[in-house]
Design a protein around this nucleic acid. Sequence first.
DNA 1: GGGAAATGCGCC
DNA 2: AAAGGGCGCATTTCCC
Length: 816
Amino acid sequence: MLQHLQGEGGRVFACDTEVAEINVLSESPVGHGRLVCFSIFCGDDVHFGLGTPNGVRQNKLWVDVLEQGDERAAIMESFRPFFEDPGVMKVWHNYGFDRHILENEGVRLKGFWGDSMHMARLWDSSRQSKGYALSSLTSDPDVMGVPRSELRGKTSMKQLFGKPNIKKDGTPGKLVVLPPVEEIQTDPETYGKWVDYSAYDAEVTWKLAVELERKLKEMRCHGDGVDPSLAATLPTTGLGGSFSMWDFYTNYWRPFGELLTDMEQEGVLVDNEHLAAMEEVAKKDQESKENIFRSWAAQYVPDAAFMNVGSGPQIRQLLFAGVPNQKPDLGDLEVSRTFKIPNTTGHIEPGREGKPPLKNRNIELFSVFGREEPTRFGVDVYTPSGWPAVSTPVLRTLAGKPGTAQKALDTSPSASLDPEDESDNDDVHSLRYESDDANPLDELPIAASYSAEAALEEQIAQGYGKAYSAFGGGHAGLSACAAIDALCDMAAIDTLLSNFILPLQGGEIKGPKGRVHCSMNINTETGRLSARRPNLQNQPALEKDRYKIRKAFTAEAGKTLIVADYGQLELRLLAHMANCESMLKAFRLGGDFHSRTALGMYDHIQAAVEHGDCLLEWDSSDGERPAPLIKDMYASERRKAKVLNFSIAYGKTAHGLAKDWKVDIGEAQETLERWYSDRPEVQTWQAERRAELHETKRVRTLLGRTRHLPNVDSRNSALRYHCERAAINTPIQGGAADIATLAMLELDRCEELRDLGWKLLLQVHDEVILEGPQETVDEGLALVRRCMEFPFAGTNPLKVELAVDANSATTWYEAK
DNA sequence: GGGAAATGCGCC
DNA sequence: AAAGGGCGCATTTCCC
């Protein structure tokens, strides 16, 4: 077995640490936690000269470093050469955590041989339900390659060391609590068990790694997923056109795993002053919005004066009481419901007069249309469990945009609703609810009309939502719209505060230098990264960032940030993989890709362009624009083209499009066919992916990673269809992730960048952020662009160029 | 009081 | 017989 674990330098050691004084759920291991012990294992046959206490030969090394002092310092020093020797190979399960903990001790880990968590993900990316925890993997016979009877499953800490909690009166309670690690390690009762427990982790990590190495060596990486010409350019020599998944690991994910921990260690500087200022503004805004809604609701439902405006169920009760559940047998939403809320006003319940107020009180909520009245709001969106949804899009259709409407009325009574800021980002979601097809009034004359339908349409055209007429128009209608609008704003501000502004200021995620160190994980089904504690990959996008949160991410004094992102990475990759002539041509010619798509879909646009009535694009430096742009003249067609460009990669159906666009399925189908008419190769490619899925139960990414989709044979049709869509999306999303990985490896290996002092800080799927000296920003930008445009060992063998947009500034906001 | 489920929402 | 892929995380509510 030993030969399997021989890295270049010989034997491989599995290591594991145990740490006290850290809340792993909320705190970063960078700058937090105290090492209390560590253990090392390198094979059943290797002993550490410790004799045979209790008749058992000790093949595990367990080191106690709990007590502070000179002795501990001496022990750490004696192990430093082992940990820091690049020639001594070490394997870890979740390397980043242990690396940061040891770094806190001043130990600079070298000799990274592997991370068994990444190896497991590469072997099978789809253990979402079972997970990739050491205990889960090592108790799975399929993973360990031995019968269940030969596995010694890992017993949980709680089971081994849990004690009943001590109640206030000193008697043991029912709850099982885990004593602090220091206590477990010092208590003579548990010491022995603890040593066994923690040393066992190193042992099973080693055994897991041995087995995964064997498995990955048996797995072919690429099949026909990678163009052989591509494989030949991969940044390794001697791999040729076919290689094992182990080769993939050692060449890509092993260095990538190391690079990610460098990024985590580096962290990013956060400007707390800016956040604190924004917090103050946001809280004021939130309070005023909340009051608008609360006082409106209390006119109809008295107890709404005390409600929790942020509670979905309470809002649902006000707006949709009595509505039947969409699924059979679940009944109706109650006409009236009581909610328990904190009693902040000293309210005394009837019958408790003279007694002190209770901590909580009950409030009763019913419909704003009256206790027994049916809602006058139609319901067309339901939650997965069948209740009326109260999400922002739903509330938005009720509220409309009263502010905009008021503005329009003030300036010109006949002005139609201003279209939403046509920011040209790639956010397909923001397009969904403002598609002009959803609001046909843009094209209707706002003439006097006597039908109720036309009156309704008129309000919508003026910016009011369904609440206007539901409350009989006039002042009541206006204030209903304004109130629900305020509710939407309140919720949005609340999200910004509790997801971003508040946690980013907290110390739990901060390291010693006040920088934020999120954890970057290779833990998705497609091979994308994810980020945690905090998730820095979902910071508010520029155009929605009303408090400019991205301005809080800054470079330190004297330094600056480079933010570089790929343009249309996934679409480019689709063009490459499907070998789609029309898409490849559109990218070759450049310019606005979505306009080109519209051009390919609609003959009348084609004709207009040919006659010079409109232009695809215009460079303003060439003087006065002779004709309008497609973007303006055929905005609706372009918008559809843009939605389709993104939706097709996700396997969206005509049914889904029809629902989003509020058109019949035939029309949606027709539009879909228009898209494909210009790009038949995409349809062929998708059919091939489906066929591959049904044949092998797997799909592959550009570089040959696989995703297992066994549910393709499920009896549950929802699961089956999900697999079909995933089969189309995974090569695109996963392939884009492969390219991003290659680019980051190039950036990491680029000696010029390193010598100039540039360091990778973050990755957001198709975007990277680096920090470096202000003086060398121009060289930095050029090098970053080169690495990203030519991520295959300095080349780009794809059939499309990889467009990179790179900018620099001292904050993330300004550099993007 | 903690954990889980439901709901919702931020990003690409 | 579902109806766009991939994530992390907050809050409310229910349950033990």
